[in-house]
């Protein structure tokens, strides 16, 4: 092997030496687990529909149900195993958002219920709320600017 004389050469060499993630296997697992979670959501949705519940409420029921299942599996110390296997398959659906709130809550319990559980709950999910809510506000404002005919300004 050639001598390494710069940080750039070292970085290129390290890239070659470092094993890559098994991306095909990971994508396959992410696909079917993620698909299954969404399909489960759809089944809950269909059940709601047959009971005559309106669409918006049905979607809400689906979210709450999946969040509950995710929190339950996290509390049983099972969700991390699913996550390790499925990667984005369990992270990207709303289950991943729930897990990212539940797992720090459990982890930081040792620092108490206020500054531990209460404060640390959002260490992973906090940014999601910050960016999600901020984006929605900007979108609302843009909507006012570009669709002024259809709405009434205060």
């Amino acid at each position: 092997m050639k001598p390494i004389n710069s940080k750039e050469e070292y970085a290129t060499y390290v890239d070659q030496k470092t094993p890559n993630s098994p991306i095909l296997k990971n994508c396959f697992n992410a696909f079917w687990v993620g698909g299954l979670i969404c399909a489960l959501g759809q089944i809950i949705f269909e059940i709601c529909k047959t009971r005559g519940i309106d669409e918006t409420t049905s979607y809400t029921i689906v979210s709450i149900s999946l969040i509950f299942i995710s929190a339950f599996l996290t509390a049983l110390n099972i969700f991390n195993k699913i996550g390790k296997f499925a990667g984005a398959g369990s992270l990207v659906p709303i289950t991943g958002f729930a897990n990212s709130i539940v797992s720090p809550a459990m982890e930081y319990k040792s620092e108490g219920y206020v500054m531990g559980v209460g404060a640390k709950m959002f260490t992973v999910a906090g940014p999601v709320l910050v960016y999600g809510i901020s984006t929605s506000i900007i979108i609302g404002i843009l909507y006012i600017i570009f669709n002024t005919q259809s709405i009434t300004l205060i």
């Binding site: 094993p19 993630s21 699913i82 499925a86």
Partner: peptide, 13 residues
């Protein structure tokens, strides 16, 4: 890193 119960994958390295 992350809480133990967070369902993430570890890099091969």
């Amino acid at each position: 890193r992350f809480p133990l119960e967070l369902g993430n994958q570890r890099a091969p390295s």
